[in-house]
Amino acid sequence: MTPRIFTPLVLFLVIGFLIGPFFIIVAASLSGGETLAFPPQGFSLKWVAKVFTVESFQESFAISMLLAIGGTAAALVLGVPASYALSRYKLPFGETIRTIVSLPIIVPGIIVGLALLRYIVVPFGLNITLTLFLAHTALVLPYAVRVVSASLNNLRSDIEEAAVLLGSSRAGAFFRVVMPNIRSGILAAFILGFVTSFNQVPVSLFLSGPGVRTLPIDMLSYMEITYDPSVAALSALLAFMSIGIVFLAERFLGFSRYV
């Protein structure tokens, strides 16, 4: 095989593997049949419509939304000051702190989930929802710190001193001249964190309790019982939601600069 054929073939295969499943899911969700199958049997929107009638989906969607928004917001509340301190001051163990903050990216989620269940939830009887919230905050924190740090590093620190010499307090300088200039970084971190949290499976898998399930976990268990195309329909809807968010972010913020 010559490289002239080989290269496009590899490219085609990679793109196919990456995007293919998405098209299959979309096609399957528009099926007129009773089971999840590909190619779809006939065409209908009934499974898309059914998604909105499944009660547990509504509940777990709300939980996932709250977790994604709340967890990401909490991660930013912790992450913005942390990034600021890490990028502006020579902290003792600064690099160590940076590494620890990045750990949730490196440690497999399944281990985090198991550890939280075995050593936090079971022995201390900690509320599942609270544990989920803490876990998602920790998972999103590395992204928040990374993205916000990137935009802080692009910002000269002497503008804060300039603000102080013009009469502003140190804290005032942060809110008046630092925050406005890292706003798009913070928004980018929020979107990245939201998507990460919303699609999170392995950690959440261990942290499910009666009536408390995130949407992806709920979809898994739904499929175990009911093998109909509504899961595909829901997946497709979620994928479109993510694409929409990322598209808007790119459109208005130049999101890809920060990741």
């Binding site: 000269r156 503008i159 001193e161 300039a162 603000a163 010499l165 307090s169 008046r176 001249v177 200039n181």
Partner: peptide, 27 residues
């Protein structure tokens, strides 16, 4: 520093990038 009535023109100028020239001077 914010109560000294001492002005400083930084080597890098340290203008606020998100504000217009007018708002920089008005800060």
């Amino acid at each position: 520093a914010n109560k000294r009535s001492v002005g400083l023109v930084f080597q890098s100028y340290a203008l606020f990038p998100h504000l217009t020239v007018f708002e920089n001077v008005a800060f």
